[in-house]
Design a protein around this nucleic acid. Structure first.
Lengths: 194, 194
DNA sequence: GTCTATATGAAGATAGAC
DNA sequence: GTCTATCTTCATATAGAC
């Protein structure tokens, strides 16, 4: 039997939620993507779910709790990709695997990526909430490895930024997922390999 | 004498503002960058300028007017770069010039780029306000030229997205402008040339 | 798990004086 | 160009019943 991973490594994935909570988080994510976190009120979330504000408050005590839960739900997917990549033997293979997984994720969820990557409230949350901060450090650690020189860091920032921002760009809004994924992968490899 | 450019080409640059208006727009841009447009109240802007809300309303009748004026001010700089590039003879040279200018701009103003590129309110404004829409179409037209196939469009989206998002990325926050500009230019060229 | 009703504050916006 | 005072609407959040 494989030994269970340390607690810190499976925090996000192990969070369980009720059906009512999942409805709220799904509606909130949609609204965050369209209006930003600050531009989304609890009334809007309640209306989207089809319940009253009080019903929403019964599930989450504050709006900030909803924001955190949304971030955790989405980053749990990133955590899975990270664990798969970290179990690879060579660093090169780990980076390659991570790249492919992240692009798949970003394309599949492109409608919502902007809400997490760019929103100032989310950015602050990622920078201040220790478990999420730790996760992002692992992601960047894998991407830049031991090399922490300017070139590697700019390249890593560009890759992360590129994938996140390109998938939400209006110029590619009408491309199908497969085409977008292929081109993205080709160009992302060019950023790193050359 | 050089003939004056058509009216549509110099709309943004020709807008004049009073000192009081410029103070408001500068404060608003800073706050938009930190909190997003929706997360910035008129009270916050007034406090940052050091006046009352009513004084702000005397300059701009509504918050949306401030948002529009901020967008126009920033995009006026892009308009200048575009005009310089469009006056080039060859398309290749035009693209190269535009690339360099846009990177210079993005790096110099990196603290504020995210507010314009990513904020949902700004995105909606760019998509709905005809003069700004027109400007962005000219920018993308220059970048992808006649080739409007998937490869060119994804590459253009990636380049625009990359520059905009990489300059605001935490990984490069402590790099000096020159280093960031050099690396950005190197990698951006790789996206297009290969 | 959901509701109605309500408290409290902050938002956008205006009136009118200096 | 700026102020104080005010209006209205909407925000977050809570109390208590079903």
């Amino acid at each position: 039997m494989a030994s269970a991973p340390p607690a810190a490594l499976r925090q996000l994935r192990s969070i369980r939620r009720t059906a009512a909570q999942e409805r709220i988080l799904a509606a909130a994510l949609d609204l965050f993507a369209d209006h930003g976190v600050s531009g989304t009120s609890l009334q809007m979330i309640a209306d989207a779910v089809g319940v009253s504000k009080a019903a929403v408050y019964h599930q989450y005590n504050a709006k900030s709790d909803i924001v955190l839960a949304v971030a955790e739900t989405e980053l749990a997917k990133l955590e899975e990709a990270l664990e798969a990549a970290e179990s690879e033997a060579s660093e090169t293979r780990a980076r390659g695997l991570m790249l492919g997984r992240v692009i798949d994720m970003a394309v599949a969820r492109r409608r919502w990526v902007g809400a997490l990557q760019n929103d100032p409230v989310m950015v602050r949350l990622l920078a201040e909430h220790p478990p999420l901060q730790l996760l992002m450090e692992r992601v960047y650690g894998l991407l830049i490895g031991d090399a922490s020189d300017a070139e590697a860091r700019v390249a890593a920032a560009m890759m992360a930024a590129t994938i996140g921002a390109a998938v939400v760009h209006p110029l590619v809004a009408d491309l199908d997922d497969d085409t977008l994924r292929q081109e993205l992968l080709r160009i992302a490899r060019r950023i790193f390999d050359a």
